[in-house]
Design a protein around this nucleic acid. Structure first.
Lengths: 157, 157
DNA sequence: GATTTAAGGTCAACCATGTTGACTTAATTA
DNA sequence: TAATTAAGTCAACATGGTTGACCTTAAATC
């Protein structure tokens, strides 16, 4: 079993990591006149090009009205493009414009750099442990959303 | 080196884990008429009894005015107690009342349960990897704030 | 002892981002 | 044709951040 001290350490690690993980992007966004909510939308649209509003709502777990405000701004300022899904014209497929892609890249690079260092310092095996634990923290229904790290040579040693 | 896909997976894991990790406490807080900001204050005061406003500001990285609103509410409603530090009477030592401790316990239990399951499912070694990676994500200056998991030995339980 | 610094508090205005609730439109499905 | 679904809209409100200005008390320093 795990002692309270170890469990609290987990809680605190998650708090501090998330705080610092969002710090740099927040500063970048600020220079563009955007906020963290815009970041989330941009990230997941970039990750799932052609995604719809409903899908985004499920990922972000916010209301349509809240997303609408953010998305409207992104479309208006040319970060995000909408086009009707030819198969179901009620749906709008969301994609990033070049401007949106550039910003996404800037934001994600900053966060990937942080992960690069942390992964490299911790080592391959630690990374696998990190994945296993954090996946266990996520609600089971949503674990499928997390893309598998794809194929890794002859199996995970 | 790590491929972009693996780094993005880290980003997404952190996003989903944090989202779900805060979900249950948010619901509990709601029943008490409190919000996430109150949770953070209660947690860190409970964890560091006698801590001061300045110390709390450093941990939470918010402004004095923002904390003041939250802290004022907690004191007013009897969750948090203040007393002057005898060594430096400008400082106020913050502690949880019994009512505050009860709420802290309710909130933290919910989060610890989540960690208990995740840790148990992932295994001891994975937990160590989780710690190593997340510590690397935290800004170096703040790594010292994270308590070491103490000595292993016979432990309690 | 007088001055400066530190800890804390306060008032006001504002902003970002979440919420609820009601209602509309257009397109698809039953 | 009727019901459902995807999306959008308007309004009001809550939470928790921000900046800026200013005050009090206590401690530290000159």
């Amino acid at each position: 079993m795990f002692r309270e001290e170890e469990l609290r350490q987990g809680i605190e690690l998650l708090f501090y990591a998330y705080r610092d993980f969002t710090g740099e992007p927040d500063a970048i966004l600020d220079r563009h006149g955007l906020g963290r909510a815009h970041h989330r939308a941009i990230y997941f649209i970039g990750r799932n090009p052609g995604t719809t509003v409903t899908e985004l709502l499920e990922i972000l777990r916010i209301t349509k009205q809240s997303l609408s405000r953010v998305l409207g701004h992104l479309v208006e300022h040319g970060y995000v493009l909408q086009r009707a899904d030819p198969a179901d014209r009620r749906r709008k497929q969301l994609t990033l414009s070049d401007k949106g892609k550039a910003l996404e890249h800037e934001l994600t690079s900053s966060q990937m750099d942080r992960f690069k260092r942390a992964y490299a310092d911790a080592g391959e095996e630690a990374v696998e442990g990190f994945r296993r634990v954090l996946t266990g923290i996520v609600n089971p229904e949503d674990r499928a959303r997390i893309r598998p790290p794809a194929i890794r040579g002859p199996g995970r040693s």
